[in-house]
Amino acid sequence: MKGIVVKGDQLNPRLVWEAVPDLVFGSDEILVDVWATAVNRADLLQATGGYPPPAGASEILGLEMAGVVAEVGEDVEEWQVGDRVCALLPGGGYAEQVAVPAGMLIRLPDSWSFAMGTAVPEVWYTAYVNLFLEGDLVAGETVLIHAGASGVGTAAIQLANAADATVFITAGSAEKLLACRKLGAELTINYKQDDFLEKVLAATHGQGVDLILDPVGGGYLDRNVRALGRYGRLVNIGLLGGTHGEMNMGLVLGKRLRIIGSTLRSRPPAEKVKITEQFQSGFWPLLRDGELEPIIDTIFPIEQAQEAHSYVAQNKNIGKVILTIREGADARPEVV
C-alpha cells in the first residue's frame, strides 16, 4: 500500500506519498480502505518531530479517517466488508489502509461523503470531551472558545449551542468572526485588534465566563484566569502560544478555579472506545440528522499533503482541511 512518509529534517520536513509496508491487523480489529483523512495541528507537530505517536501507534501521520471496511477480524461480529465508516485514530490515517479497533468505528450516514465523515472524529470528539467531560459545561453557562474558526472551534461552537450555552470566541480575521457568528457565537473578538479579556469582562458586566477552551496556552494564561468567573474552568488543549505562562494564583484560589490540561491522542484505547460510545449516544444523532454540521474549508488530494500542511500552518482555514486518498471521496453517494 501507499502512505505519507516524512523525509528531510525537522526544520524542512517533506511529505512524500510512496510505498509503505502492508498492515497486519488483530482479531478484534477492522482493516479499512481509507478514502479520506484530514489535517490536524498534531500532524504538523509530528512532522517536525514535536509530537511523537503513542507507543505502539503507527508512525504515519493522520488522526482520523473515513473509508470502507476491507477485512474483518475473526472476533468481530458487528461489522461487514463494504460498510462505510469513520474513526478516530492514534495515527496512520495518511495511508491507503488502516487497522482500527472495532469499537472505534462509527457508521457513516448514507448521504454523507467520506470527506464529511473524516471531518468529524478528531475535532468533534475533542470539542465534546473538553466542553462536557472535562469542562462540565451545562445549559445557561457561558464558554469562551479561543481559535473559534478552527476545526475544534467550529465544532465546539455548535456543541455548546446545542447544549443551550452562550458562546464567545476569539479569531484573527473579519471573515473568521463572521463564520463563527453564523455558527452561533454571540460575542466574536478579533484577538489581533482587541484584548479579549476586556471584551469578555465588558460583555459579562465584570463577572467573567464559566468555561474557557484554549489551544493557545503560553501568554494567554493570566488573561484566561482573569476572564473566568467564580467556579470557572480553564481547559487547555494546546500550546500554540508556548509552554510557559504566568498567572495570579490568588485569583485561582479566590475564585475557586479549576485549570485542566487535556489531550485526546494519548488516552488508552479503552477510554477512546468509551468516548466514541458516549458521543454516539449524545451528539452524533444531531450530526447524522443535519442539525449540526462538520465544517470543511478546503480539500486537497493526498499527493498535496505538503501544501495542505502549509495552508493550515498559515491559519488560513475555517473548519477542516481534508485529504482525499481515493477519487470521489468528496462526493455524496446517491441515496435510493
Score class of each variant (00 low, 15 high):
Arg107Glu: 13
Glu186Cys: 04
Ile189Trp: 04
Pro21Ser: 10
Ala331Leu: 14
Ile212Thr: 00
Ile322Asn: 06
Val120Tyr: 03
Ala270His: 11
Gly184Lys: 11
Ile4Ser: 03
Ile296Cys: 01
Cys86Ser: 14
Arg265Ile: 12
Leu88Ile: 10
Gly245Leu: 02
Val6Asp: 09
Asn315Leu: 08
Ile259His: 02
Glu198Ala: 14
Arg14Tyr: 05
Val24Pro: 10
Arg14Phe: 08
Gln314Val: 06
Ser111Asp: 13
Arg256Ile: 09
Ser173Phe: 01
Val76His: 13
Ala87Asp: 11
Glu303His: 12
Pro269Ser: 13
Val225Glu: 05
Gly91Lys: 08
Ala305Tyr: 10
Asp214His: 02
Ala42Ile: 14
Gly135Thr: 10
Leu286Val: 14
Lys316Glu: 10
Gln158Thr: 00
Gln10Lys: 12
Val34Lys: 02
Val321Pro: 11
Met65Lys: 01
Val200His: 00
Val252Arg: 08
Ala171Met: 01
Ile325Val: 12
Ala179Val: 11
Leu323Phe: 03
Gln80Lys: 15
Leu31Met: 12
Ser310Met: 15
Ala57Tyr: 00
Gly8Val: 04
Ala305Gly: 09
Ala171Arg: 00
Ile212Gly: 00
Ala163Leu: 04
Ala313Leu: 12
Ile295Cys: 03
Gly151Ile: 13
Asp210Trp: 08
Thr37Ile: 01
Ala162His: 12
Leu88Cys: 07
Val200Asp: 03
Glu246Asn: 05
Ser310Cys: 14
His244Gly: 06
Arg84Met: 08
Leu240Asn: 09
Lys182Glu: 14
Ala162Met: 10
Tyr231Phe: 11
Gly290Gln: 06
Gly62Met: 00
Ala171Val: 03
Leu178His: 09
Leu211Trp: 03
Glu77Ile: 15
Ala147Gly: 11
Val321Ala: 04
Val209Cys: 02
Val98Thr: 11
Lys199Pro: 01
Ile275Gly: 07
Glu175His: 13
Glu59His: 12
Leu137Asn: 06
Leu61Lys: 02
Met65Arg: 03
Glu198Val: 15
Ala165Pro: 15
Val72Leu: 02
Ser266Gln: 13
Ala179Arg: 08
Leu44Pro: 02
Asp289Arg: 02
